[in-house]
Amino acid sequence: MSVDARIRTTVGSFEIDVHLTCAPGETVALLGPNGAGKSSVLRTIAGLQGLDQGRIEIAGNVVDDSAAGIHLPAERRRVGFVFQDYVLFPHMTVRQNIAFGPRSTGLDASGVDHWIDALGIADLADRRPSELSGGQAQRVALARALATDPQLLLMDEPLAALDAATRIEVRGRLRHHLAEFRQGTVIVTHDPLDALVLADRVIVVENGRITQDGPTAQVAAEPRTEYLAALLGVTLIRGSAASGTIACVDGGTLIASDTHTAGDVVALVRPQAISLHRERPEGSARNTWHTTVTGIDAHGDQVRVHLAGPPALVAAVTPAAVAELRLAPGEQVWASLKATDVSVHPA
């Protein structure tokens, strides 16, 4: 393992309790809302803040062990850290920034040129950080972290400081660089797209706890928490299933084509799968509701219509449909959903 960290710690009145692993060559995304404790986890692994209880191993070396009273200072952990807004030393050139790590650890300075070339920043080498664009600064920060030959790379919201256009370009480039890095990488982000594009595995952190941990594709397809479902644009409904009928926790029922999954389940519904009608629909859809519109908001070229249910649902329709159906908060509307569009997963 590049890192194996069990961390229990209190930041202010906020409690964090997580177990996180990352294998060599693997990129793990810590995905969660702001204030979930993701950055604290990262800083604790780096040794920039202490932990109350737990044990952290980096590349097989114990760097923190509360039981044994071990706490290795940050400078001896061999961890590369890329900060949110990069924190390049303003009084040094790009080259001096990158050489700072190798000089500190007595490492061969020839690695500096390697990373300057690898990240395509040779023409920036003599500039000051104040003369760099956001995307360029991000590359310099990555080169500076990698030049110390770290056993683990930690990145705190590496794309958050960039504007939307730069973000797309930098995200793609970052993915390419991470693929070449042989050690583990842990990325903290609140943007699902960053996690989906960059990570092999996604760990969802909410309120200081891990709520989901799995391969990226699986986490994306089967969100297990309301937060993640909303983030990915699907509606998550909890309930208990028996032969294809789900009694929803918040009231109402859902008919699903999956008749095998039973017991406590989460049902996922894509907003695009829900049709809205002025009159009672006739057809094959097994789920129909006569319900109240509770809210309407624009979402790109789609309009999200929030429905009271039960269960509460979100339908995605075109602006034309909103006009045609005269949808407005408080209006009654018919909604339908095919049983095959309800995906059921054990909770």
Partner: peptide, 12 residues
Amino acid sequence: RFEDAARTLGAS
């Protein structure tokens, strides 16, 4: 965080 960054880079 400038000091934090320096520490993660191995500076005493």
